[in-house]
Write a protein that binds this DNA or RNA. Structure first.
Lengths: 345, 345
DNA sequence: AAAATTTTGAGGCACGCACTTCAAAATTCT
DNA sequence: AGAATTTTGAAGTGCGTGCCTCAAAATTTT
């Protein structure tokens, strides 16, 4: 602990030859300040490099923020992780006088999601939504924003909506990364590549697919992409799809799963002999995918960090609600590449 | 903004039928509280789920923290980035009432580093040091800690010292990751692999080398490692080393640089024909390495995020100084894998 | 029972700022 | 010039806690 005192509002007042009240008027943009006085006060603040104490300001403002997070119901391992991170962030949020309430909704159904958004209490100070890029959902988001509740989209975006921002990765880049790893890991062998997604109306899956296709067609012409299979992010469907691919196609060199359902993929791949096993690249490091990666059934996972995303969403909402600054670099969610050798723990 | 009031210390006092002073004694572990009273107060706190307001507590404690960061002098691109991040964290730190002073020292000289550590003002509330795993340095760290200044090591550790903790990546894992990528990217071709480090007395370089060796010898027996070359992290030496490797060895399939000097490596590789160019894996995404990666001269970079590391070090020191809690998951520095397709920007 | 000790209460000051009120001073308008 | 209006100062309260003092009450020891 140290006592090098930072300048206070009173110091600024004295330096500018005015009263506390006037400095307060300047700082908080209140009216009735002569241009000349305003100038003098600003100069004094500059000279002393005065920064209002956020602790004291927060205390005096007695602001408390309540946010609503709308998350997908279901058994997707990654989304479970997101929900857990939201729950686990309570302690961290307490330090910022904020709190989060969770709502679960079927995110595959646009009408249910739009309804849930409409049902969000307008008393909240902000909302984070795992969105669907769909007209009804966009409209519901816009209504919520119009009612004064700032919205950030989380993980899956609704770009045309009036949301404050999107917290998530660049999914096209994630898809390109998947393609580059898959292409290089398959070592120049020509053949076909199976492609799975959860749904073609999920923006993040579509973006990944776009980036994946783009790079394969440019750099790995000896690989031919098989028709996309939709799995609804369900383990069973993913498992069946992989099994079918392996059985039907002798020239199968690799599989890319842009969606969830990796537990099923792992099961299907585990039943194949090591020699017949295709290269596999998927997304998200979860309880469903960590095992297969460690055992060598999966070759690489392109991941995003749920904890970072949840905290980033909260920080954006807090910043919006309180007018506080943000560190853009800290809010950019990066793409993590995991192979067996750099898995955590 | 919302006004659902959280319970205050006064609420707890009333609920427990005692005075503010007594609740204060309980909360802050002051003496002279009867066991029974202590019990009653604890129950009341539990029942109201009372949490001391961190803003008010911070204000009342009027704690200000000054930390000293000891960074390597020189022209290493990554360390420049670290220094820039320290400088740039001022705004963020203001919100936590902390400040950082930077000192630059020749980190390759144990005596200079130890002397700089001894010269750290004991009035600091903590220090972060890019360490050297060397007896004099360890002893100097221990002296500083003994004098009441908590120390965290940053990026390069001194494991046997009494430092509070290490902020940096698992470098052995980073080395294994480099090996796995290098092995898979070279596509099964046999041949020799050139290996560069900055110095064999830098703990982080040695750890990377260890992990790299380990995995190559286990999984990529068709690759033979050439003798390690020390470059002192200098571009010129690295450039010359790469040029020599390429000229001397027709069977060279890959190069691994566990240290810095990537600007030089990029220059040397740029002069080689695309067909004669070895696979290259290095560390850190900086101004020196981003260009070659984008142009395809480099194949992969294993990186750590300087900004995260600086903030994590600061958080650890603040937590230590103030007794605040930390989120371990948030403080674990992860290994980033960059290939051309997932470069930021 | 008296003396010594421990426990508790009451109250207050401080932290730095937000926000208010009211009167005095300065400026602008008629 | 006087009246109307705008700008400024002085002073206060409150935010929730830390930390301090002093006296009163309760408990333990002699």
């Amino acid at each position: 602990m140290n006592d090098t005192q930072a300048p206070t509002l009173l110091d600024v007042a004295r330096a500018a030859g005015v009263s506390r009240a006037t400095v307060d008027r300047v700082i908080n943009g209140r009216p009735n300040v002569k241009a000349k006085t305003l100038q003098r006060v600003r100069e004094a603040m500059e000279r002393l490099s005065y920064r209002p104490d956020p602790l004291a300001a927060g205390l005096a403002r007695r602001a408390r923020y309540r946010f609503c997070f709308l998350l997908p119901a279901g058994t997707n391992a990654f989304m479970d992780e997101v929900a857990a991170q939201v729950a686990g962030s309570a302690a961290w949020l307490a330090g910022t006088r904020a709190s989060i309430e969770r709502r679960f909704v079927d995110v595959f159904d646009p009408f249910a999601l739009a309804g849930a958004i409409d049902a969000v209490d307008r008393g909240f100070d902000g909302a984070a939504i795992v969105a669907l890029d769909e007209p009804h959902v966009r409209a519901a988001v816009d209504r919520l924003v119009a009612d004064g509740v700032p919205v950030v989209t989380l993980i899956s975006d609704a770009p045309a909506s009036r949301r404050l921002g999107f917290v998530g990765v660049d999914n096209a880049a994630a898809g390109r990364t998947a393609a580059a790893l898959l292409g290089r890991f398959s070592g120049g062998r020509g053949g076909s590549v199976g492609v799975l997604v959860g749904s073609l109306s999920l923006r993040d899956h579509v973006d990944r697919l776009f980036g994946f296709r783009q790079l394969v067609e440019r750099d790995y012409r000896h690989l031919s992409l098989l028709p996309v299979i939709e799995t609804r992010d369900e383990d069973g469907e993913a498992e069946a799809a992989v099994a079918r691919l392996a059985a039907a196609d002798a020239g199968l060199v690799a599989i890319y799963n842009a969606g969830a359902g990796n537990r099923g993929v792992g099961r299907a791949l585990g039943r194949l002999g090591a020699d017949r096993r295709p290269v596999f690249v998927g997304h998200e490091l979860t309880s469903a995918s960590a095992g297969p990666l460690r055992e060598g059934l999966f070759d690489a996972l392109i991941a995003q960090n749920a904890g970072h995303e949840v905290r980033s969403a909260a920080r954006l909402l807090i910043a919006q609600a309180s007018g506080a600054p943000i560190i853009p670099e800290q809010e950019r969610i990066r793409i993590d590449v995991f192979i067996r050798e750099n898995m955590p723990d």
